[in-house]
Design a protein around this nucleic acid. Structure first.
Length: 917
RNA sequence: GGGCGGGUAGUUCAGUGGGAGAACGCCUCGCUUACAACGAGGAGGUCGAAGGUUCAAUUCCUUCCCCGCCCACCA
């Protein structure tokens, strides 16, 4: 074995071994308890970033832990077709060839997207393999697979039949670049510096009278149809029966009174642009105003914009202000910070826009989804997310599900060419599609129109929002709708369970806070609606991975730390362990490259400890171990405690705590103390002693490897396979049953052994450690060469610990580089030439006569102290100098004060060392 | 405007009604046959500020100040 762990050599090997032997694959097993996680499907366009790495490490830890505990454990992987994102990627590719999707046409374009998917779509799942994710790849799904597409269509039709789907002209969020509608959640608001423009609208029939309105988007004035004021606003009483003139367009505007207007804001008068502002749209509905659409789908001004037709919206803004200024109709322009909506896929400024879209009525779906959380059937970790969830659910708005793109599930609605008439674009009443003539909702193209008997149909051009397939993920991946979940009592004894019967509801959902509304909330609604049961029991929401400055990692900021690079450099185990160590429940993770060093160092430590044991193990003979030393009892008891604590923290999703427990035990108990103590036996030449030592060392190593395996799957497997041949013998020597497994990943999870439970040994050992550390401390402070063996006298009333030292002197002496220990069961007078220290109720005398020159050492320390005194005097003088205090930079003064404290501390310390000599 | 999270060592962060911790960095000593990616020792913090509850507060309560996030019809 090499002295350094080399992850590259082992990771690929073991992953292939696991996957080829199908250790990840399971079928429902009624003899076991199920444990199931569905992966938050990454976008097919995705490449593994730290957020994925964290998310999937957490899932893999849970899965591997439960699998070893004996659950029938299933982790379903897959990818999301990510409608807009994927379409954008392929469109960019086409653009390089000078083509647009329109050039290709719908069919050819979709073919191109599928080709892209076949070629690049498995990038991210292969990267998950590198991370060590133990997904059941035989069940890998894609949201546009046949089965999942069927689920989407079925869900749409079911909602339609329940009257929960409607079509309507409504104001929605429009991305002028993607040329599609977006759901409210798909808009990202960013604070931006802009201007608030105060525009003067002349009052008709009055000379030199104006109403001033404020707006951040002057170009929308072209679509103004009214000005609204608060009903109680007396300032505008004079406008009764008056109208305003819309400048530039010479259109008459009515005055409407509406409660929504805040008299405090701006001038208290609001221009009303129903076609381009959601609030104005609502006002228009209330007052029966007809909207004027002044932009096209690309965000350019249209024919309703008069002479501004063809201008981009931002160009138009400049031009309009210029024109208004020349007519002296701009009262003022103030700098203004406001939040502007951006497309979450391409970051273009969103335009509120009236268009015909499909919607889902959400209130009826939200109701059971609220109840199931309130009833405690779904628990959030950390719990604060429950409030966030409920607040959103209780104020839920209808979901715009249609998208004007091509890549996705096409809406299963057909229009009869013969009898269907498109409703007016100014008809704003939501349409129950059943009431529309010639509109047919159907999974397949209908044969005949039920209205007129026609047989010529066109399908709706739109596709469904990506999340309309994602929200079905927990059960569509299990075969719904072909497979149905049956109620437990309808299943006959011995009858085969299907995946839904067995694995649904899944156990834990592990996800990021960003998609709580997008995905988590909607999955709960879908689960209740389509299966009648919650989709998961626990929701663990981890934090966002950010850079060291707290910014999100993004390509444009160039602050990405690539997990694959970290894997290449330090190994997947180091990446996983480091990530998990710094992830406190639900807290954001601030990451920098050096965070991974501690994980890498830990893998190396594990490697070398194992290397040491394997090198020393030689041949092992079976013996009967029925008596163990206090040290053995200590490590076995601490191991018991570790098992309990790791189970506890994992079941509470305190992953960082589990990680630090394991780290602490392995490094600072097992390596620092237990192995060091056992070296005596290993090197003793006494076969019984060395065999017993080997057996317990191997046994502990086996246990810790199993406990570490969920966190660090690769290195634990590599080492475990090397020690595996010795395990049957080690187990039987300890009187334990050993079960053989081909891989550690399905080996049994360690259990607490009640036969070995000796809290007394733990108490004693902590005092032993304390005394040894005190000895080392004195040695270091007095400059005793680390390799120089010395004698120590321990004296005092603590008979118990003194006995322990007495009996185990040969184990303890190497730990402190001692030549001999002399024990006195009562205190003694301090011998000449000794240094003094205490630990608990034990006095420690280090016999340094002849080792160091005590007088000389004393003199050295006194000299040192003298120097400090002089420095201190100078510092104090400086601080008492009023001129200095008055003139000097406060930072300098603070530094001098700090130095004073430092010196005082150092002097005090030297005094205490001198006292002990 | 409403809500949430955070402010603890030089840095990044755990944690707790009674003893202040880890990693990385720093200082001293040591390449002692598992590991220098190591070992031994050490320095370093009025736990954001002010009040209150308590025998006891970094921890619980109130107010305030900074940082971050989410939600909202910020015209």
């Amino acid at each position: 074995m090499e002295s350094r762990y080399n992850p590259r050599q082992v990771e690929e090997k073991w992953y292939r071994f696991w996957e080829e032997n199908e250790f990840f694959h399971v079928q429902p097993d009624s003899g076991k308890q199920p444990y199931c996680i569905v992966i938050p499907p990454p976008n097919v366009t995705g490449i593994l970033h730290m957020g994925h790495a964290l998310n999937n490490t957490i899932q893999d830890i849970l899965i591997r832990w439960k699998r070893m505990q004996g659950y029938c454990t299933l982790w379903i992987p897959g990818t999301d077709h990510a409608g807009i994102a994927t379409q954008n990627v392929v469109e960019r590719q086409l653009a390089k060839e000078g083509l647009s999707r329109e050039d290709l046409g719908r069919e050819k374009f979709l073919q191109r997207v599928w080709e892209w998917k076949e070629k690049y779509g498995s990038t991210i799942v292969n990267q998950l393999r590198k991370l060590g994710a133990s997904c059941d790849w035989r069940r890998e799904r894609f949201t546009m697979d046949d089965g999942l597409s069927e689920a989407v269509i079925t869900a749409f039709i079911q909602l339609f039949n329940r009257g929960l789907i409607y079509r309507g002209n409504y104001i929605i969020n429009w991305c002028p670049r993607c040329k599609t509608a977006l759901a409210d959640e798909e808009v990202e608001y960013q604070e931006q510096e802009g201007f608030l423009y105060y525009l003067k609208y002349p009052v008709i029939g009055e000379k030199r009278k104006f109403v001033t309105v404020a707006t951040t988007r002057p170009e929308t004035m072209l679509g103004d149809v009214a000005v609204a004021v608060h009903p109680d606003d007396e300032r505008y009483e004079f406008l009764k029966d008056k109208k305003l003139l819309l400048p530039l367009m010479k259109r008459e505007l009515v005055i409407v009174k509406d409660e929504i207007v805040d008299p405090e804001f701006g001038t208290g008068a609001v221009k009303v642009t129903p076609a381009h502002d959601p609030a104005d749209f609502e006002i228009a509905l209330r007052h029966k105003l007809k909207p004027v659409i002044v932009m096209d789908q690309a965000g350019k001004m249209n024919e309703n914009a008069g002479k501004y037709k063809g201008l981009d919206r931002f160009e138009a803004r400049k031009q309009i202000i210029k024109d208004l200024e020349s007519q002296e109709l701009v009262e003022k322009i103030e700098p203004y910070i406001h939040s502007v909506g951006h497309c979450y896929r391409c970051n273009t400024v969103i335009e509120p826009y009236i268009s015909r879209q499909w919607f889902v009525k959400m209130r009826p779906l939200a109701k059971p989804a609220i109840k199931v959380v309130k009833d405690g059937k779904i628990k959030f970790y950390p719990p604060r997310w429950e409030k966030v969830y409920l607040h959103w659910m209780e104020n839920i708005k209808d979901w715009c599900i249609s998208r004007q793109i091509w890549w996705g599930h096409r809406i299963p609605v057909y229009y009869c060419r013969n009898c269907w008439r498109e409703e007016s674009e100014y008809d704003f009443t939501p349409k129950d599609v059943n009431s529309l003539k010639g509109v047919i909702v159907s999974a397949v193209k209908p044969e005949r129109c039920p209205e007129c008997g026609g047989n010529d149909f066109i399908q709706d051009e739109d596709v469904l929002d990506t999340w309309f397939s994602s929200w079905l993920w927990p059960f569509s991946t299990m075969g719904w709708p072909k497979i149905k979940k049956r109620s437990p009592h309808s299943i006959k004894e011995g009858e085969k369970l299907n995946d839904l019967d067995y694995f649904y509801p899944t156990s834990t959902l592990v996800t990021a806070q960003e998609i709580l509304f997008f995905w988590v909330a909607r999955m709960i609604m879908a689960g209740m609606e389509f299966i009648g049961e919650e989709p998961f029991r626990d929701v663990y929401i981890h934090g966002t991975v950010r850079d060291e400055k707290g910014r999100k990692m993004s390509k444009s900021l160039g602050n990405i730390i690539d997990p694959l690079e970290i894997i290449q450099e330090y190994g997947a185990d180091a990446l996983r362990f480091s990530l998990i160590s710094i992830t406190a429940m639900g807290q954001d993770v601030y990451l920098s490259r050096d965070k991974f060093i501690s994980g890498r160092n830990f893998t190396n430590k594990i490697w070398n400890a194992a290397r040491f044991l394997i090198m020393n193990i030689g041949e092992l003979k079976e013996i009967r171990i029925d008596r163990v030393s206090v040290f053995d009892a200590w490590i076995l008891t601490v191991l018991n405690q570790l098992i309990t604590d790791v189970n506890q923290s994992l079941s509470e999703y305190n992953f960082n705590e589990s990680a630090s427990l394991l780290y602490e035990f392995f490094w600072h108990k097992f390596c620092d103390w237990y192995i060091e103590i056992k070296k005596k036996d290993l090197y003793s030449g006494d076969e019984l002693k060395s065999t017993q030592a080997k057996i317990i060392l191997i046994y502990i190593l086996d246990n810790i490897l199993r406990l570490l395996h969920p966190f660090m799957p690769f290195i634990t497997e590599e080492i475990w396979q090397k020690i595996k041949p010795f395990l049957p013998l080690a187990y039987s020597s300890l009187g334990k049953e050993y079960r053989d497994f081909p891989t550690i990943m399905i080996a049994t999870w360690p259990e607490v052994d009640d036969r070995i439970h000796d809290p007394r040994s733990v108490e004693l050992m902590s005092r032993v450690i304390e005394i040894i550390q005190a000895i080392r401390n004195i040695r270091a402070e007095l400059n005793v060469p680390p390799a120089k063996k010395i004698n120590v006298i321990l004296a005092g009333e603590d008979g118990e610990i003194l006995d322990l030292f007495d009996r185990n002197r040969e184990y303890i002496m190497p730990l402190a580089t001692l030549d001999d220990i002399e024990i006195h069961r009562q205190d003694i007078e301090r011998p000449d030439g000794s240094a003094f220290g205490t630990a608990g109720r034990v006095n420690i005398y280090l016999l340094l006569q002849g080792i160091i020159d005590i007088q000389k050492e004393k003199q050295r320390l006194r000299d040192k102290r003298e120097k400090f005194y002089q420095d201190l005097e100078n510092v104090v003088a400086k601080l008492e100098n009023k001129e200095f205090i008055a003139k000097a930079n406060p930072q300098v003064v603070a530094k001098v004060r700090e130095r004073k404290k430092e010196l005082e501390g150092a002097i005090q310390e030297l005094n205490s060392i001198l006292d002990s000599l």
